[in-house]
Amino acid sequence: MSENRSQVLDHRQVKQKITRMAYEIYERNASEEEVVFAGIAGMGYTLAKLLADNLQQISPINPLVVEIRLDKSSLIQGEVSLSTDVAPANKCIILVDDVLNTGKTLAYSLKPFLEITMKKMEIAVLVNRSHKLFPVSPDYTGLELSTTLNEHIAVDLTQEPYTVYLH
């Protein structure tokens, strides 16, 4: 790969951020018996599974992980669905994505949850770029990173070592 890229987080740092986020989730949801991690297809879903694994190791909370399926290239016309037919009603739901850029993907991913009753919804992202176009703010953030609109964040959690790059 000949393009210029800079490593923002190495494997140890990514794991440390995920562990810290899991502890924060536990602190804010200590009274819950179950928490639903709703990960956006791709790295968001992978991050949701990693957060759930970490939460399970440090707390008695039972994590349930579901995938939010959507077409990121066609958010307006595309269908948004969950990987389960059972709607996680009356639960704390944590919406998870790898990178928060403008908030558009996260805003559209709320669609399946608009018709169910929930205790609360929170948002967790590994990297927040803070280019807000939509009124979406994360409750749990691994890293706040100011970038230009031309720059791109690439998160790879598919296999170890995990990495985050700035292109």
Rank of each mutant, 00 (worst) to 15 (best):
T46W: 12
L55R: 04
T147G: 01
D97A: 00
Q7L: 10
I61Y: 11
N128L: 09
L70E: 08
A22L: 06
I123G: 02
T158E: 15
E34P: 08
I40M: 04
S2W: 04
T105W: 03
E34F: 09
T163R: 09
G142C: 02
H131K: 06
H131V: 07
K111D: 09
Y23F: 12
Y162N: 00
D10C: 07
A22H: 04
Q16Y: 11
P60D: 13
P138L: 00
R28M: 11
T84C: 09
I93S: 02
I68H: 07
I116Y: 05
G39E: 07
L47W: 10
K91W: 05
L64C: 14
V155S: 00
N4M: 10
V86E: 12
G103D: 10
F37G: 03
A87G: 01
P135S: 07
L64W: 14
I76Q: 15
E27W: 12
A41F: 13
V36K: 01
S81R: 04
V164N: 01
L143M: 09
S74I: 13
N62M: 14
T105D: 01
L64V: 15
Q56Y: 14
P88I: 00
R28Q: 13
E34M: 11
V80Y: 07
V80T: 06
R20F: 14
G44K: 01
T117Y: 13
I18G: 00
S59M: 07
F37A: 05
M118F: 15
M1W: 01
S31K: 12
D53A: 13
K72A: 14
G103C: 09
Y162W: 03
L70P: 06
Y26V: 07
T158M: 14
H11V: 00
S109M: 02
L82Y: 08
S59Q: 05
L70S: 04
I93Q: 02
T147C: 04
Y108S: 06
A22G: 05
V155W: 02
A107G: 09
N4F: 11
L47R: 04
P161V: 00
S6L: 12
T158A: 14
T163E: 10
F37L: 13
L143P: 04
D53T: 11
T117G: 13
I18M: 02
K17W: 05
